[in-house]
């Protein structure tokens, strides 16, 4: 553990390893891999590390925060020709999309475009590790608010007005709210994955608590 703790993993070395069961910490050290460490004397090391202990150090953005001077994305000035973008979300927890008047909406004053999954040139999937979530719903919706289309316009007001003209036909399906319902409907998230190391069967059969 101690050895691993100071180890800086060489990422390019990791890419050549294809064993799916390994975590970053389990990767073997690469050849000539650098190890991060302090180079001062132990006394200097201790002094440097301790100089902030017990002291309140102001957050480096604190003055910006308390004065309101710190700019967040929403605070940036509008650029010329900037469009406002919003989602059209599902009104139901589970349903089949029959029709959306996207072409009609796109013709309205101040509306620049309405886009569904069919307008996405590449794939429609995203996700932090496994890309299995649809960016825009295709055929069915599975939760309230699930984005079905993107609407872009010249102002918030234009989008607000256009949304009133929205005609979204959805055939409601039975929603799945509990684990029991999910099991009986055989609706599971992703495929089952197992992580095993060493002689799993032996350890499992001998384990006191399983």
């Amino acid at each position: 553990m101690k050895e691993n703790g100071n180890q800086v993993t060489n990422v390019s070395a990791a890419s050549s390893v294809t064993n799916d069961d390994l975590f970053v910490d389990d990767l073997p050290p690469a050849q000539n891999e650098l190890r991060s460490d302090f180079i001062e004397s132990p006394a200097a090391q201790k002094r440097d590390r301790m100089k902030v202990v017990g002291k309140q150090v102001a957050h480096d953005s604190a003055v910006g925060h308390v004065t309101g001077d710190a700019l967040f994305v929403d605070d940036l000035p509008f650029t010329k020709n900037e469009l406002v973008v919003d989602f059209i979300g599902s009104p139901v927890a589970h349903g089949e999309i029959i029709n959306l008047n996207s072409e009609e909406l796109a013709q309205l004053d101040g509306i620049t475009g309405v886009f569904t999954h069919a307008d996405i040139p590449g794939h429609n999937l995203y996700g932090p590790v496994i890309q299995d979530e649809r960016f825009l719903a295709e055929g069915v919706v599975e939760y309230v608010g699930q984005p079905i289309a993107i609407i872009a316009g010249e102002s918030r007001e234009a989008i607000r007005q256009a949304k009133k003209k929205l005609r979204l036909e959805i055939k409601e399906l039975v929603p799945v709210f509990t684990i029991e319902e999910a099991i009986s409907a055989k609706q599971f998230i992703g495929t089952t994955r197992r992580f095993k190391q060493g002689n799993f069967e032996k350890a499992w059969s001998e384990a006191e608590h399983t």
Partner: peptide
């Protein structure tokens, strides 16, 4: 009041701070 918030470490992301 602003200085007190800085000194007491009263902000983190800063969005609610003002």
């Amino acid at each position: 009041v602003q200085k007190a918030m800085v000194d007491a470490a009263g902000s983190q992301c800063g969005y609610c701070t003002p």
